[in-house]
């Protein structure tokens, strides 16, 4: 009987080695350990014919073999399951180069991005960000800025009129210098982004509506060196740390002294190219010390207060930064354009 058990065990172990799948394992378990017709069960059923003295030994041995086989079957099962999982996963292989699912990406208009970037720089320097009306009075847009009726500077800015001589579409963001100073006492530091309008023919670099950012700082100690410092910080932040800034004398009715602001061309790095007309410099805006007449117009005493103002064109800066050569792209709103920013 013990021999029978030994033979059975050997056979079962051998058979187990050739078991490859979960189904075969179940089959094997049924064949050798099944409760009804399992071979071991069959042997144990014959135990009743064995003399009582041997019965105990054989019974013990049979149980040992049963445990042993079950143990081995369990090991085999793990191996098989692992292997089966792996092949199941392999079957689920995907092509990772397939396109992604749609997660709509949105885009902020390059003009908005440029405005936020520029204003953000000045925000860090303690400037408030203020927006004013686009439909303005002649007083704020011209007179208070030292541009009286019939001043030739009015020619420089062809105006859209709503009420001739009274109400107009602002030609510059500068009227907000007056609005801000009328509403607050010094110290003042503010930037004003917004749309401005010029009654002009449009071409690759001119639009009848475009965006400007006005800057104003007035207190008892601010000089033109602070203006230059602020604009240098701005230019470095926007165009890169190696950007240089230069001042050229200029004329604006509401600043005195006035300066045109140039930065080194960021296309050629100042060596000269078509963008900068081979000068190495690109003009980004106008600036100057607030004209004493403007200060008097808002009841600031020019003997006590001084400060600067500047204005930059947003489209121009965006065109420089992104290498855009046609201003009308900004208002065309072609998705193929918008998507690039």
């Amino acid at each position: 009987m013990l021999d029978l058990l030994r033979i059975l065990k050997d056979r079962a172990v051998k058979a187990l080695h050739s078991v490859e799948t979960s189904a075969e394992l179940a089959q094997w378990q049924n064949t050798y350990l099944g409760r009804q017709d399992g071979e071991l069960t069959k042997i144990l059923r014959g135990l009743k014919d064995v003399p009582a003295t041997e019965r105990k030994t054989i019974g013990q041995r049979a149980n040992e073999i049963k445990n042993e086989l079950e143990e081995q079957a369990e090991l085999r099962k793990k191996t098989i399951e692992e292997r089966e999982l792996i092949s199941a996963l392999i079957a689920e292989r995907i092509d990772v180069t397939l396109p992604a699912r749609t997660l709509n990406s949105g885009y902020m208009h390059p003009i908005s991005q440029t405005i936020y970037e520029i204003c953000g720089i000045f925000q860090k320097l303690g400037f408030h960000i203020i927006e004013g009306p686009e439909v303005e009075t002649d007083y704020y847009n011209f007179q208070a800025l030292n541009i009286p009726q019939d001043h030739p500077a009015r020619d420089m800015q062809d105006t859209f009129w709503v009420e001739p001589g009274q109400i107009l579409l602002r030609t510059q963001t500068s009227p907000n210098q007056i609005r801000i100073m009328e509403q607050t006492k010094p110290p003042v530091r503010a930037v004003v982004p917004g749309k401005v309008y010029r009654n002009e023919a449009t071409d690759a670099t001119h639009e009848a509506m475009f965006h400007q950012i006005e800057g104003l700082a007035v207190d008892s100690s601010t000089t033109m060196r602070d203006l230059r410092g602020a604009l240098e910080a701005f230019a470095r932040e926007l165009f890169g740390p190696h950007t240089k800034t230069r001042f050229r004398p200029s004329y604006f009715p509401f600043t005195e002294p006035s300066a045109e602001v140039d930065v080194t061309c960021n296309v050629c790095g100042g060596k000269g190219c078509r963008v900068c007309k081979f000068s190495g410099w690109v003009e980004i805006g106008g600036s100057g010390m607030v004209h004493p007449q403007v200060l008097r117009n808002v009841q600031y005493d020019p003997a006590i207060y001084r400060g600067y103002a500047f204005g930059v064109g947003v489209e121009r800066i965006a065109m420089m930064r992104y290498g855009i050569n046609e201003i009308r792209l900004f208002s065309q709103n072609d998705l193929r354009f918008l998507r690039q920013f």
Binding site: L125, G126, H128, T184, P186, P187, V188, R189, A190, A217, D219, S220, S221, T222, M224, R225, D226, R228, G229, A230, L231, E232, A233, T245, F247, A259, G307
Partner: peptide, 11 residues
């Protein structure tokens, strides 16, 4: 007119 870091009173 060399640049200097703006130091005036801030609002």
């Amino acid at each position: 007119i060399t640049g200097k870091y703006p130091t005036g009173d801030a609002p």
